[in-house]
């Protein structure tokens, strides 16, 4: 594996907090992987995102131990604004994620490139491309303040993608969106994965994780409890004890297992359920 993000024995405590939010976290994230972080409230998911993007320690102070390396570089030594080119960051609240000074979606998406000093002609071309890619070209002349939550979240994603970072850190992008908005956001995430971006995603909609993610990191009380390929983590017996949801398919299958049915494998996507049941029947010797 070619780790693009590496955490080594990282512990962190916020300035006004009494307890460590992350405790001795070590993990590697491979290039081009879509890695999802799950965990209950205050498990440390957002803190982990802030750490990877460098907002800890550059923006949030507090006590930080251990090291965070991105592309082999110590994040604490990087410049916060410059990191935008390397690591994109999108979070849950679609209403605050606008510059607050631009009057059209086009200008809004261009804001990051202006800050990076990209020549104007390049900016126009890149913004055009991204508006097409993210399918928000129809919004180009709208005022960002007048958009719906789902539209704003897509504009926020576009505003980050336009800077073409290799890594995307996306913290619960759909938690304030309706199903249509969620789907549109995940379309964009899938597209970014196809383009080879490394994606770190916090999400609690397990069906979406089962469908899109390569790896799953389970956090609890600031510690990494499980980390591995999605299918393996869901199938791990210790996952159940952590009190986190399963995908629908897996939950259903586990119920059946509890009722005495032997499962040939744990289905995690809806379309795997039929296959699983068919194989289970064959095993039991029925037609």
């Amino acid at each position: 594996m070619d780790p693009v993000i590496q955490l080594k024995n990282v512990s962190y405590r916020y300035p006004v907090g009494d307890e460590q939010v992350l405790k001795n976290v070590s993990l590697d994230i491979g290039r081009g992987k879509l890695v999802t972080i799950v965990g209950n409230n205050s498990a440390g998911k957002t803190t982990l995102c802030n750490l990877i993007r460098g907002f800890i320690p550059h923006f949030y102070k507090g006590d930080l131990e251990g090291s965070v390396l991105v592309d082999g570089e110590e994040i604490a030594d990087a410049q916060l604004g410059q990191l935008a080119e390397k690591i994109g960051y999108v979070f849950q609240n679609p209403f605050i994620q606008i510059s607050g000074v631009k009057e059209t979606v086009f200008d809004e998406v261009a804001f990051g490139l202006e800050n990076l000093g990209v020549p104007v002609d390049d900016i126009r071309r890149r913004v055009e491309d991204v508006l097409q890619l993210v399918k928000i070209d129809n919004l180009r002349n709208k005022n960002p303040f007048e958009l719906s939550g789902g539209q704003r979240q897509r504009v926020a994603l576009a505003s980050i993608i336009v800077m073409d970072p290799d890594i995307l850190v996306i913290d619960e992008p759909s938690s304030q969106l309706d199903p249509v908005g969620t789907e549109q956001v995940f379309d964009i995430i899938r597209l970014m994965k196809e383009r080879g971006k490394t994606i770190v995603l916090v999400e609690h909609k397990m069906d979406l994780i089962a469908e899109y993610a390569d790896e799953l990191i389970v956090l609890a009380d600031g510690e990494v409890k499980l980390h591995g390929p999605v299918r393996e983590v869901f199938a791990d017996p210790s996952y159940m004890a952590l009190g986190i949801q399963y995908p629908h398919a897996a939950a259903l299958a586990l119920d059946l297992q509890e009722k005495g049915m032997e499962l040939p494998f744990l289905p995690i996507r809806d379309e795997e359920v039929a296959e699983c049941l068919a194989r289970a029947r064959r095993k039991e010797g029925r037609p």
């Binding site: 960051y89 990076l116 800077m163």
Partner: peptide, 26 residues
């Protein structure tokens, strides 16, 4: 309370990048 997230938004858009900004609006 919203200023913290706004600051993060701005930094995510390279607001404090140590380069000369360009501008579409001239």
């Amino acid at each position: 309370a919203s200023t913290e997230e706004r600051a993060i938004t701005l930094e995510s858009r390279a607001f404090s990048a140590p380069v000369n900004k360009t501008s579409l609006h001239t």
